[in-house]
Amino acid sequence: MSSQSQPITLVVNGQSQTIEADPAQPLLWAIREQLGLTGTKFGCGIAQCGACTVQLNGQPIRSCVTPISAAAGAQVTTIEGLQSDDGALHPLQQAWIDEQVPQCGYCQSGQLMSAAALLSANPSPSDDDINTAMRGNVCRCGMYNRIRRAIHKVADTNGAVAFFDPAAPLSKQETGQDVEVNHG
């Protein structure tokens, strides 16, 4: 196995950092040990539990099996980067609190990163959509009902309605977002 360390630049939560690492090393351990961002968790190491989920250019990936080389130069988002820069919680994080989702909490970084990727691709997911997107994330504490409820809650609040801002000029919405606007 190759074990040649080399400088690799990672862009994590908008910050570019260069580390010395074996390009084959999974991204998870670079995030946790080299960048010190411990919100991303280790659960299985073989892409079976989702605890290590981060987003790579907005796509949820299992960082335990993703070599750093695959992430070099891409946008990596971890749980620490889910809230906005001003510290406001992501709507899902708020829903997680409102629905009292976490139990031990260990799986929840991964759950949130998967759920956030789901909602940005599909603002109003059906139960089946949620099943498909979330079945890779094990919650040993069994909080699935709450996770589902919290996702639906955000979808209900932010779903299709989020695209419609009555204060904005109609034309801007039509050009900015390719959606039908119904003023009825």
């Binding site: 040990e33 971890t78 997680w96 009292q100």
Partner: peptide
């Protein structure tokens, strides 16, 4: 009453430090 749990906010932003998250200077693995 269903009072919100004290421990939940730290579990939605990755800030809760579990045993596995311990950081000690000079630590090996």
């Amino acid at each position: 009453q269903s009072k919100p749990r004290f421990d939940i906010p730290g579990k939605v932003n990755g800030s809760t430090e579990f045993g596995i998250d311990a950081q000690v200077p000079g630590m090996q693995y």
